[in-house]
Design a protein around this nucleic acid. Structure first.
Lengths: 225, 225
DNA sequence: CCAAAAGTGTTGACTGTACACCCATGT
DNA sequence: ACATGGGTGTACAGTCAACACTTTTGG
């Protein structure tokens, strides 16, 4: 560190979160309507200023709780944006995170109704405030990469799930159909999930086996060169 | 963004850079001796506070220029660290970058002599100030991943190079020997480099062909699922 | 018995890996 | 002529992609 302390006036710091879920076989992002200027009324990522002494990670969890009412989910830092002009109010540095949530776990808080939080399909996003469009795009790229070499999918599913649901998660994230047999074979060989022995009955079809992730903590698969 | 403006007191923002090079077949990191408290005299990453109105990317380039005297190199944002307690002076948020530089391009500035900048092999790093040890570790992981699906290696080599040098870059970064024939075959098939037609003469052995990267701008290779 | 989704194997193409010898030069 | 690193091909194993039919249930 140099002697720049004198002329150091730190930028404002905010945290924005890209909250993903799968709904109706589509990858969706949580957006709110901005209650205040700038960009009042436009769609934006949930976020907020850092509270005094708060870490960005804590702020991300707080916002997640406030806007979506969820706790124990996959959260990961994405990137830090501070291009000049990204916020008309001046220099703002935003640390972005992304989170993965199973749709049925989300309960919007009453207090947030005014901002009408809503999940938008990534295939038809509205115009977003600030540079949030770029942020979402970046997040999608990261998610696509992550889901191929981690167990992150657990965070988009409920604890017990059926193989078809798992495949739908991958298809929604990657944006294309996958072959049922190849997908099952490959995924099984990764050793990330185990059968519960239970079956899902009640549909008018052959009952499907229920699986669960062996670990619901982030795991990276080893890669070889 | 919520109504947290009132209690928003932004943390100090610094930028640290992990500057990599290849020297003597080893991956090395540039470290300086801290001139001031805290951690005075200990080895640390070059870095500094953000100047007023400066973006973190600009700050990274400025520090790169100041400490290593280089301009046109591969620079990429790494991660943002703000764990409590990482800096004894209080809440400090650090945006980290990593840079790749060919060793022969570096000229240390006289003004920086006091801090005795020096390249340390990643295999025998001293204890580092702050959480810089963790940062370097993280950077190595990122570099290893990047070099496998981008053309980032161009930034660790001079414009024209011989196949053996390219291979040494990969071996140093990945930390293991690679098979000469397989490496050549694979790398050639990527289409990132082209022969210059020239040969490197003067050694007492068969002259080696000189190659150059077709593009010296970052390129990502397409991956398939 | 019909509709619906579940479950299951084989083949061919491709990719990665292991491995050893001759070549062109400088001294 | 010899020491040095440069340059090259083949065979085997593992992985990926394409592809269609039978099973089990609820209605």
């Amino acid at each position: 560190m140099t002697k720049r302390n004198k002329i150091h006036q730190p930028p404002a710091v905010t945290v924005d979160i890209v909250i993903f879920t799968i709904e109706n076989k589509e990858l969706r992002v949580l957006l709110i309507k901005r209650a205040n200027e700038p960009f009042k009324g436009e769609a934006a990522l949930p976020g907020g200023f850092l509270a005094r002494g708060e870490t960005t990670q804590r702020a991300a969890l707080r916002i997640l709780k406030d806007k979506a009412g969820v706790g124990d989910v996959y959260v990961e830092q994405l990137y830090t944006f501070d291009n000049p002009g990204r916020d008309p109010r001046g220099q703002v540095l935003t640390v972005t995170y992304f989170a993965l949530i199973p749709r049925e776990q989300i309960k919007f808080e009453k207090g947030e109704k005014a901002q009408s939080p809503e999940f938008y399909s990534v295939k038809k996003l509205p115009n977003l405030a600030f540079d949030h469009g770029k942020i979402v795009e970046y997040a999608i790229g990261r998610l696509r990469a992550k889901i191929e070499y981690t167990n992150a999918a657990y965070s988009l599913l409920s604890e017990e799930f059926v193989f078809a649901e798992l495949q739908r998660v991958y298809e929604a994230v990657l944006g294309r159909k996958l072959d049922k047999r190849n997908f099952r074979k490959k995924f099984m060989s990764l050793g990330l999930i185990k059968s519960t022995g239970k079956k899902l009955r009640g549909a008018r079809q052959r009952p499907a086996e229920l699986y669960r992730f062996i670990s619901r903590k982030p795991i990276e698969l080893i890669k070889f060169f």
